[in-house]
Design a protein around this nucleic acid. Sequence first.
DNA 1: CTATAAAGTCGACCGGATTCGACTTTATAG
DNA 2: CTATAAAGTCGAATCCGGTCGACTTTATAG
Lengths: 200, 200
Amino acid sequence: MTNGKRQQNKEITRRAIVSAAVDLFSRNGYEKTSIEDLAKAAGIGKSTVYTYFKAKEEIFLAFCDEEFEYSFTALRDRVDADAPLIEQLHTLFMSQYEFVTSNREFGRILLREILFPKTVTSLAKQSNQRYLDALGEILTHAKERGEIRPELDNFFLSAHFFMLYLGALSGLYTGYVSTTEEVGAGLRILLNQALQGIAL
Amino acid sequence: MTNGKRQQNKEITRRAIVSAAVDLFSRNGYEKTSIEDLAKAAGIGKSTVYTYFKAKEEIFLAFCDEEFEYSFTALRDRVDADAPLIEQLHTLFMSQYEFVTSNREFGRILLREILFPKTVTSLAKQSNQRYLDALGEILTHAKERGEIRPELDNFFLSAHFFMLYLGALSGLYTGYVSTTEEVGAGLRILLNQALQGIAL
DNA sequence: CTATAAAGTCGACCGGATTCGACTTTATAG
DNA sequence: CTATAAAGTCGAATCCGGTCGACTTTATAG
């Protein structure tokens, strides 16, 4: 009857792994944490980890999920829903920027996984979706205020802004810029281009 | 005296490794080619490879450099310098798109390294620069024709378009789109948004 | 209360990238 | 022409992600 016992234990073990990941990844970094370390910390055997996650990367994404939850909630409050669109976008992205790069290595791996995942996992897509949803909301509101062209599709608008944000981040990782100020300034220029249009 | 002998041999060996990489990566793919395979093909010992490259990824970037040379040259001819800007950009990017995704795995690794490199190597920056330069040329020409706002900075314009291109590519890798046609259509929408502007 | 199939666990193993350390070659000072 | 230090080479060892297959636990049908 009760197949709930199994389900429940599975959930507990899964949490134990993610919790170990949050701890060890944060403390020692992704590369320096082995699957065996995680297993030991979670009190299970190494290969059991693979019943819960297909690959190490997947654990990383679950780890991100936890961290994101916090970051996104904290963020909602910071964005003023009636500020000009560009300010809202700038605030949103710079907050995310600070969170994502709070650990450089962490940010790099996360961005790689989100943009160019090895396999299309629901988790990667989910992370993405969260951004696109948050943006979509802001955009809908901006349309209502008559700030942007209403005929444009929210998905492509969100994607557009999101890519500009990632461009600013990439500038950091490739060494084009190095300070938060530079990233912020660059991002603002790009957002302005998008809003005002590039063509004469 | 002659410390040239050593230098010269080093260069020869380096070339041998890259040449082996071009051959084996193309034929069997990146993951399926082991360092030992490369070493054997280059006629050296496995660990000697590490005197020339810090990691496998670095060999991959050297490999890309070779391949890009060809791809970029072939491309110049295809772009009509007097077509409307959006057509030029679309042609440029779709050609690159086809080249980059001719092997899905290859494209994925390349894009990761270009956007979010583990270490800022000159190679990654160089690849990037090549794109930005090619774009800069097109943009300068477009300014002369009066097609775009002349006060905008070429670097940020190039970066903007480049990111939209990468967004389209990312859509492929994350599963938002799956055919070349869809990528092309999505890219066109994004380019249009950038050119026409998003704001009312 | 079994029998048994399904689900879960884990130690042992595998392949491949990277490191180590002993050995060989080269450049050069005297 | 040595001696020797620096540079280069490579097989062996290590480390780690991931798979395999034998073993254990759980659910359930009769």
